[in-house]
């Protein structure tokens, strides 16, 4: 562990403020491992988050970081990637942040397909604000606000992402580190918007979806699952019952924002492009 964030050599991690036993503790080393195994330079990595417990992740790893507003992780993340495509941009934040407050950005950034990676720490609860229902909380889940049990249907984020046209959709579990590291690496390498919904127990505020309940139910997809087959992906994503499938549900390559954009495709990164003053003079002249 390090004191300050100026290590540009390795993805060191820092002392955290999470509760002992929090699922986030399993996710952070997976991220560190994935970044290290991919041989990325920390100075070329930008971690972006909103606000929440999960959203503190950028604070705890040695890379560039942008912790913005609650619900607003995606807009600065995609814009940073548009500004400088040399950056590996990873959004790491909670499910309340991603699907609740930021739901509109979630849908529309799937449409944009900017080449970023979105790791959602899905603990099915609002952790930082001490345990209210989140968009993925189950029906009947009793909280300090949902005092008679949550009556709103939980959102199925992986199904929604598929429906909205995402090209990389995965679900993982913080308790299966081997699988998580591999999915993280695949997601980061995928050229386009990649969503990984990571099931994560919240030890303090979610007594319903515990480590044990996840552990008993998660079921990695088998080799027979074809991630390029949309209908298989939908089937896995909508599977109900005791078992929760994990793994890469869907992976197909689609044109990205950068490959479609006339100013970005086959050009140097936006930050390195300069507009010759003569071009501004042309515009001024066009009004004469």
């Amino acid at each position: 562990m390090n004191d300050h964030m100026h290590q540009t050599q390795s993805f060191d991690t820092y002392e955290t403020a999470w509760c002992p036993g929090c699922g986030n503790f399993s996710i952070l080393p997976c991220l560190q491992k994935a970044l290290t195994q991919l041989n990325l330079d920390p100075h070329h990595v930008l971690m972006v988050a909103g606000i929440g417990q999960a959203a503190k992740t950028p604070q705890y790893i040695s890379a560039n970081g942008f912790c913005g507003l609650h619900g607003r992780a995606l807009p600065p993340a995609i814009a940073a990637k548009i500004a400088n495509e040399k950056l590996t941009v990873i959004v790491e934040t909670g499910e309340g942040d991603s699907y609740g407050e930021g739901g509109n950005h979630f849908i529309h950034n799937i449409r944009r397909n900017v080449d970023i990676t979105h790791f959602v720490h899905d603990n099915q609860i609002y952790g930082l604000t001490k345990g209210q229902a989140s968009p993925t909380s189950e029906i009947g889940h009793v909280t300090g606000v949902q005092t008679n049990g949550n009556i709103n249907q939980p959102l199925n984020p992986v199904f929604l992402a598929l429906a909205a046209g995402a090209g990389f959709v995965a679900r993982a579990f913080s308790g299966d580190q081997k699988q998580l590291v591999q999915i993280m690496m695949d997601a980061i390498q995928y050229p386009g918007y990649a969503l990984v919904d990571i099931l994560q127990p919240c030890i303090s505020f979610n007594k319903v979806n515990t480590f044990a309940s996840y552990k008993d139910r998660v079921q990695p997809l088998t080799d027979s699952h074809d991630p390029t087959d949309f209908s298989q992906a939908v089937q896995a994503a909508t599977q109900t019952g005791e078992q929760i499938p994990t793994g890469i549900f869907y992976r197909v390559e689609k044109p990205t924002f950068h490959t479609r954009h006339p100013v970005l495709a086959d050009h140097s990164p936006l930050i390195e492009q300069t507009c010759d003053p003569s071009r501004i003079k042309d515009l001024i002249q066009s009004f004469v």
Partner: peptide, 30 residues
């Protein structure tokens, strides 16, 4: 003038996105 001047003009999904994008791009150096 987007291609003439080499700029990205993005129609955001809402104004919250618009300003947060502008901040992200500025943070990243443009």
């Amino acid at each position: 003038q987007s291609t003439h001047c080499g700029i990205v003009v993005e129609q955001a999904e809402d104004e919250i996105a618009a300003i947060n994008m502008a901040i992200g791009a500025s943070f990243a150096g443009v």
